[in-house]
């Protein structure tokens, strides 16, 4: 077993660990905003590391065994990860805004600056 294979396993393990953390946080946290924190960040990060393991494995195959079949796969994987990061961030922003507009207050909050802004009425008038 050479060192690059070990790197691939470590990256895969990190990705699975962060996905697991995201799901545990989704089940454990008290309200929708904190659940969004756990879900968005950790599952995106985990997917990035799982894809990194695939990219490293393809490059290893290319340089070690001269097998170029994984290269176009890794380009597509990088593209998929860019799409995933962008859409996850924007989608979580939309969910948080919708939840606040429905009147869900953050649980156990020490400060809520947004409550001072009167944007709920403006949205309702449209």
């Amino acid at each position: 077993m050479d060192i690059l294979t070990l790197v691939v396993y470590i990256l895969l393990g990190i990705g699975l660990f962060f996905n697991l953390v995201g799901i545990i946080g989704l089940l454990r946290f008290p309200d929708v905003y904190t659940r969004l924190h756990a879900e968005t960040k950790t599952t995106t990060f985990g997917a990035i590391f799982i894809s990194l393991s695939i990219v490293v494995h393809s490059l290893h195959q290319y340089f070690h065994a001269n097998d170029a079949s994984g290269l176009s796969l890794s380009i597509h994987v990088v593209l998929a990860i860019l799409v995933l990061a962008f859409t996850n961030a924007t989608g979580s922003h939309a969910i948080a805004q919708a939840a606040y507009n429905r009147g869900q207050k953050p649980v156990r909050a020490v400060v809520d600056k947004l409550a001072e802004v009167e944007f709920l009425e403006k949205e309702a008038e449209e």
Binding site: V32, A47, Q104
Partner: peptide, 29 residues
């Protein structure tokens, strides 16, 4: 308990399905 919570869970499932598809793409080349 509320509808936004369900949407968050749905979002998590979507991300996981994308990750599974990527890994399966590497398995079957």
């Amino acid at each position: 308990p509320t509808a936004p919570d369900r949407v968050v869970a749905l979002d998590a499932i979507n991300t996981l399905v994308v990750a599974i598809m990527i890994v399966l793409g590497a398995v079957y080349k």
